[in-house]
């Protein structure tokens, strides 16, 4: 038997809960955030445009910035499928009226572009502003973000070619987003009360134990072309135990525990600095492959200096029309590798 009466226990528990809820509870830990600090980090923009910075940018400005900062990955018209999934395409004038992208319903589009999916224009502003360009996030000014967004919207024929997008008219443009009515929260997969159907699952199986069905319908097996696509499975399984990996594909790369060769170190550096996003070792992705560059500049005494200058300053026209953006952030040490 407890020595404490029931009411006393309840009081003690209530007291604990009370102290846990105290403000400024942890003496000496944490400090007030300054207004400047909050302004520096609080950059999110909500669907109701809370957090949206003031500014404006037209389609022309956007086209210019996009070509210089974005096109090397996304293509000049946001249509490229080389590095990322296309931004623009698959929406129609009719979708702008209805707010539902038809090609999502009939499955006619080969893939889903960003503008086919996104319902909220705030999402695009927020993301471009916080995370783009790919290798230099947060380097765009708000007016440039408005301009880039205006340019993309114009490519999708949501706004005219002479349009200027701003914090004052963005809510009107929201009403023209092609998939603005394309989202549903009628599901049971939100772990709270504010969204969804209260956690009710959409699929119901039963735990049958015996003679649960008459036959086994085997509907899919690994396609032949995929059998070897993941390398040698024997080298991806333990060499002792209940089973072994099946010998497939080409012999796998050397064990990762072996010391890296000089080539491998350079390759790691190229990956780490983001170069491999656009340049393959043996193939063109967006820019030329390293092997192609080596072949072109081979035997030129000043090749290293010229290439260093080119990577830092950016360039275009040598390998085709897609420009390489400047990379002033790379140190000399990186180049001499």
């Amino acid at each position: 038997m407890s020595r404490f009466s029931k009411p006393l226990i309840i009081l003690v528990l209530a007291g604990l809960a009370g102290s846990a809820l105290a403000f400024d509870n942890f003496k000496g830990l944490g400090r007030p955030a300054t207004p400047a600090e909050i302004k520096a980090w609080d950059i999110d923009v909500r669907p109701d445009f809370k957090g949206l910075p003031k500014g404006a940018g037209n389609v022309d400005l956007g086209a210019e910035v996009f070509e210089a900062r974005c096109a090397s990955c996304h293509g000049s018209f946001g249509e490229s499928n080389e590095v990322f999934t296309p931004l623009v395409g698959g929406t129609t004038k009719d979708d702008i009226k209805t707010g539902r992208v038809k090609s999502l319903q009939d499955g006619s589009a080969p893939q889903r572009t960003t503008l086919m999916k996104v319902a909220t224009i705030s999402t695009l502003f927020d993301y471009i502003n916080r995370a783009m360009p790919w290798t230099e996030p947060k380097s765009l000014k708000p007016d440039e973000v408005y301009g880039i967004l205006a340019y993309l919207l114009n490519l999708a024929e949501i706004v005219p070619a002479d349009f200027e997008l701003s914090d004052r008219n963005i809510a009107e443009v929201q009403q023209r987003m092609p998939n603005r009515n394309g989202m549903t929260t009628d599901h049971g997969m939100w772990p709270g009360k504010g969204i969804g159907n209260g956690g009710r699952p959409d699929v119901r199986n039963t735990a049958c134990m015996h003679n649960c069905k008459k036959e086994v319908q085997l509907v899919s097996t690994l396609p032949d072309y995929a059998a070897d696509a993941h390398g040698n499975l024997a080298e991806q399984n333990r060499e002792v135990g209940q089973a072994r990996g099946k010998v497939t594909g080409a012999p796998a790369e050397k064990a990762a525990t072996e010391p890296l060769s000089e080539n491998a170190r350079v390759s790691q550096l190229a990956s780490a600095t983001g170069c491999m996003a656009c340049h393959g070792v043996n193939n063109k992705i967006v820019g030329p492959g390293y092997n192609e560059v080596i072949a072109k500049y081979k035997g030129q005494a000043d090749a290293e200096a010229r290439l260093t200058q080119k990577v830092k300053a950016g360039g275009a026209g040598v390998w085709g029309s897609v420009p390489m953006p400047p990379h002033p952030q790379l140190s000399e040490r990186v180049f001499t590798k």
Binding site: R100, V101, K102, L104, Q105, D106, K117, A119, G182, M183, T184, T185, D186, H187, G188, M189, W190, P191, I195, G196, G199
Partner: peptide, 9 residues
């Protein structure tokens, strides 16, 4: 053709 949004669990 609708997308479920905020599916988390």
């Amino acid at each position: 053709g609708l997308h479920r949004q905020y599916t988390s669990i």
